[in-house]
Design a binder for these strands. Sequence first.
RNA 1: GGCCCGGUCGUCUAGUGGCCUAGGAUACUUGGUUUUCAUCCAAGAGAUCAUGGGUUCGACUCCCAUCCGGGCUACCA
Length: 450
Amino acid sequence: MIKTRFAPSPTGQLHIGSARTALFAFLFAKHNEGEFALRIEDTDQGRSTKEFEKNILEGLDWLGINHDGEILYQSSRLEIYKSAVEKLVQNGFAVEKDGAIVLQAKEALEKLGIPLEPIKTFVGWRGEKTRENGVAYFLKNIGDDLIHGKISGAISDTVLLRSDGTPTFHLAVVIDDEEMGITHVVRGDDHLSNTPLHIILQKLFNYNIPKYAHIPMILGTDRSKLSKRHAATAVSDYKKMGYLPEALVNFMALLGWNPKDDREIFSLDDLIREFKLENVNKSGAIFDIEKLNWMNGGYIQVESPKAKVESLKDFGVDELSVGESELISRGGFKTLQEAADYITQLRKTPEYDSSLLIFKKSDKEKTNIGLKTTSEKLSNADWSEELLQKALESVVSEKNLTNGDVFWPVRVALSGAEKSPSPVELLLALGKDESIKRITKAINGLENQN
RNA sequence: GGCCCGGUCGUCUAGUGGCCUAGGAUACUUGGUUUUCAUCCAAGAGAUCAUGGGUUCGACUCCCAUCCGGGCUACCA
């Protein structure tokens, strides 16, 4: 059975990139009726916190990426790593150095019968070359990657156990993946360079070598790794801004994966059904908020009225009338925040200059007739879209007015704004009492205006 | 510097040797609808397929080189 895992380190909030990696690992496992496990890599005691762990867990839960089985905590397995590395020391593949246990690349490779191809390495990075640091050994086609093909790379002497007794990432990953029975390691491209080392470790320990799938990274607008200077990076930030989990999942899935046809809208279940690793791209994808906005707007539109109420609770709107709900569906809002702000604003008694009531092709008198007649009609009207539309139209025809004498002022009276949904939509959202109240107020305002 | 990975419209992408004078989506522009805006509908613009060499009757697709970008090069993960 296929088993994948997501192994975040609780040293920060759940990052969009990590979440996408988790999503792909999850989708791959579920598509193949396998398991998706969760492991918390909290060996870096100094930087790991429970708050971050909570943020990660909640983020995954919110997105609907549910794990199977118990969560494995690396911090509870320190003794296991120690004794494993002890074996390496006994066999001469690792030695103690300044209190840390260090893998001896040369000895390890010799033991495994891998021919040595030494290359020089240097200290310093970003193009600057400082001093020679030692040797690394080049490994050609040491493994396979489901997305990139053959894996090559180099390994050098590497710290496996820190002087404080905690394992480094490389050691812990290899041991845990084996013990958890992970068959497929789905992780970000930034780990591709580490993979030769992991494979060597797996060989030294005589472990099964999992299949690897390194997925492309999510990039910022300058094509470097997505970070806070590009955009909000935490999944929880997107929740706060008013994005729906369905939209975020759908959007993230399309970053680096596609179904090989023109479809773009996928629920999590759709994705499980369609997802194939072979349809994952090799190149990184820039995180483009515009497309997320479009997608989120679409999901807000089709949300059921009940779901809308639930979604808007976090944004200061506790309940929704049928009309308000309808307004949100037609409003073209990018985020829940925008939708909620709109509703909140709508519910306040509008403040506006009475002159706005008069359409540019109308005048005070005709506007007054329009508003008064509408007010009378509405008090006996049935509150349905069709009948309200007819009611307004009948005001126009009976009083020999134009749309501008009726639709415009009614809309302004209800919304107080130059730009808003149609009067009928507003009437439905506000209800009879509130609507008549606002129109009456408008009539008074108009009369007091000179 | 070394090693690794990548490079099709601004962005996400389709394209696995002829169907490509490169398709879809988004963003953008214009028109229609709408009393206005948004929604919605339609149309348009936007990519010499990073560049240069090959291979081939024929290359976005295969090979090589170059350039550009990113990743790793920590007792972070």
